[in-house]
Design a protein around this nucleic acid. Sequence first.
DNA 1: CATAAACCTACCTATCCTATAGAGATAGGT
DNA 2: ACCTATCTCTATAGGATAGGTAGGTTTATG
Lengths: 153, 153
Amino acid sequence: MISKKTKYALKALGYLAEHSVGDPILISELAKEENIPRKFLEAILVALRKGGVLKSKIGKGGGYMLALPPANITIGKIVSILEGGFALVECLNDNVKGVCEECGDPACCGIRLVMSDVKKAIDSVLESTTLADMVEKSDTARQHKSKIMDFSI
Amino acid sequence: MISKKTKYALKALGYLAEHSVGDPILISELAKEENIPRKFLEAILVALRKGGVLKSKIGKGGGYMLALPPANITIGKIVSILEGGFALVECLNDNVKGVCEECGDPACCGIRLVMSDVKKAIDSVLESTTLADMVEKSDTARQHKSKIMDFSI
DNA sequence: CATAAACCTACCTATCCTATAGAGATAGGT
DNA sequence: ACCTATCTCTATAGGATAGGTAGGTTTATG
């Protein structure tokens, strides 16, 4: 289950992907528009900046911008920054600080072997879906819906 | 990330799948052999019984048995019992108690749309992998390893 | 009836998630 | 030079959840 932190991050990044035309957007604007607690968002944006997804401009006229085009930012990258990887067991995450205590021998642990397959499945989706895809999916769904609405009127 | 509870469940079920020849196995045996805190395991086994994966026999000579053949118990079922589903966002879980507060309109929420794809990917693995598969994977890996060991001696 | 088991209810504790506060650093405009 | 709008950093607090524990109760066997 992804945390609220990650959801907020995705919402904020989605907003940036849609509205940023090169100039920085304020934390307060993001917080207001996407309904995210201001101070909490601050911490999230810092993490994303350190993760290389965002750039910031300090001082008057400052704010946040995407560091890359939306099509080059994968959802996996974002989840990874905020959740520290998206494996279902610790011992499969990138920042591997050792083995699970549970699986005596990682090479033979059935749980690990199964979860490794799951991780591959998750990876294949999250690494191939970008911020641009997410925004587009949302737009398409919205248009499709409004078309149905028109039709029903 | 799956909880320790789920890992313990998988270990205990794996043990049952390998050692149960029809007669019940004691909680204490499971706890000892798989290195799981006795009382904690108790609660897990109750959940699995209520979930229809285990049968129990009360009283002297009692214990736990699988309620189905290992090949008919999917890992997905187990995870689902102990984690309450394996979606990455609440609003995609089966026991759907409403919508995420975050996605205003679930039909158009980009996060939901992406996570729905992820859930499908996870499902396809977890629903198609059974307890029997897990045990077999583990055995195969162990055999493979011991073969390499033999070879190196 | 004695004993061996699962069953049930309640509880405790540490950690993490979410959120907030406030002072500090930096840049722009005048 | 100064004021102001920003991001930046550190610290903190409440609540939820995970992990684990305790002790008594019920049920079956012999």
